[in-house]
Design a protein around this nucleic acid. Structure first.
Lengths: 145, 145
DNA sequence: TTAAGTGCAAATTATTTGCAGTAAG
DNA sequence: CTTACTGCAAATAATTTGCACTTAA
């Protein structure tokens, strides 16, 4: 199959900018991820479900492999917000996240929510890879106030 | 088996303070965790290995169940520092952690490493359960400087 | 007693991998 | 053409669970 038609999508540019071969599956996933230019936070299952719903034919294994490829290429970043699943963020800069306990959703915390006033110091012989900040939220039930 | 002998250990007090029935297994694990009064950060496998090494007879499933029971009782806190495993901290207060990529070890980051100067605001209808801060460290190889 | 705790082994869940086919350059 | 990518199904890894047995209170 020839993919030229989709090569002009935002996802196509995104892939090309990282030197990744734009296959049909990658283009479909890339467009789902960055098609509208908004930051997205997904699990592999999430993205797989989106792809299926949007009519793309991709296997779950390929979604996993592709997300990993995108991270290796620097297009995305894996974030650790909850022990049970891996989340992937299209915004590769280091920034704080909200984790919504009830839905398992992850969103960006508005800038300025946390200010790291004292830059953390790396212990002797180490370097800081990144500093993760996760604000875990619980929806208040109306009953329990 | 009668457990009175070990009921005077630090682990015994710890269990009693939370109203947990001090079984042989729980006492053994509790002593391993808080026996010396230092904060400890363990995975279930870690604790299981410690227990085996120290001669205690506990099953891995019981270690999992027990760690969960300790968390439910407020004696420990589960922390999310790495996607693949769950870590449990004997220090239940909210504080930043170092995650050592090479060994998978977790330690407390010295106080003052990060200062949360602007208390994060919970979105409408939510409350903040906790704010997790993880400083991911990579050991610098001598070669790559 | 008796309800809570324990230990297996089997079940689940998230993720990875081997390998035979398929497609991009 | 040739090598990278894909898809399935099987393999792993971490964790949970069902259930018969044990034990603390």
């Amino acid at each position: 199959m020839d993919c030229k038609t989709e090569m002009n999508s935002r996802g196509g540019e995104w892939l090309r900018s990282a030197g990744l071969r734009p296959t049909r599956q990658r283009l479909a996933l890339a467009d789902l991820l960055v098609g509208d230019g908004k930051d997205r936070h997904v699990t592999a299952e999430d993205l797989y479900a989106f792809a299926c719903r949007s009519g793309a034919s991709v296997s779950l294994a390929t979604v996993y492999n592709t997300l990993k490829a995108f991270c290796d290429a620097g297009l995305m970043r894996e974030i650790t917000v909850d022990g049970s699943k891996s989340y992937f963020d299209t915004n590769t800069s280091s920034h704080p996240h909200y984790f919504w306990e009830d839905t398992g959703e992850v969103t960006d915390a508005p800038a300025g929510q946390i200010e790291i006033s004292r830059l953390p110091v790396a212990p002797e012989g180490t370097e800081i890879v990144n500093v993760g900040v996760v604000i875990r939220l619980r929806r208040k039930s109306v009953i329990n106030q």
